[in-house]
């Protein structure tokens, strides 16, 4: 099953490689990973999307917690949460495709952020499924390039991951 893990860790050199190294050493999966510093510059916040049985997810959380630099780990799946991913997608936009592409971007609440005679670059934010749906919805052959950030997640309401 797909799980989305939120990790608060010390913003120190090597901390990221410890997390990534743990996943490869123990043969766990990383579907996506995002990381950046928080409002407190000594801390980084990481979101990892992974999949595995309940036992594997339990081990992953325990092993992450064991890393000295990891402050806290939560499995966002355990309660309501919001997740967002951003995608930049460059598409061929010529002839009749040009109008169609603009319309699709609008339907998906995307924004065209760069325009040339032959291309659009569209910024699209949403759940990973929404981004997948956009890719499915347009003609594959017009896609020139995609860049996705991977999902970032946060708990709903009062649920807070903080020291």
């Amino acid at each position: 099953m797909r799980h989305i893990l939120s990790i608060l860790l010390e913003n120190e050199a090597g901390a990221l490689s410890r997390v990534v190294g743990l996943f490869s050493a123990r043969a766990y999966n990383i579907d996506s990973l995002t990381v950046s510093t928080t409002e407190d510059p000594t801390l980084s916040r990481m979101t990892i999307v992974t999949h595995g049985s309940d036992e594997v997810i339990e081990q992953i959380t325990k092993q992450l917690n064991k890393l000295i630099e990891v402050v806290k780990v939560i499995d966002l799946n355990e309660s309501d949460h919001i997740e967002r991913e951003m995608m930049l997608i460059k598409v061929r936009a010529t002839g009749k495709d040009r109008e169609e592409m603009k319309r699709m971007a609008d339907i998906f609440r995307g924004r065209i952020i760069d325009v040339t005679e032959k291309t659009y670059t569209i910024e699209l934010t949403g759940t990973s499924e929404k981004l997948n749906a956009f890719i499915e919805a347009i003609d594959r052959s017009v896609i020139l390039e995609t860049v996705r950030t991977g999902a970032s997640g946060i708990g709903r309401g009062e649920r807070i991951l903080k020291i």
């Binding site: 036992e55 339990e58 081990q59 325990k62 092993q63 917690n65 064991k66």
Partner: peptide, 11 residues
């Protein structure tokens, strides 16, 4: 003392 040792191979 190590939670990750528990339920690793055996529930």
């Amino acid at each position: 003392v190590d939670p990750s040792s528990i339920a690793k191979r055996v529930k």
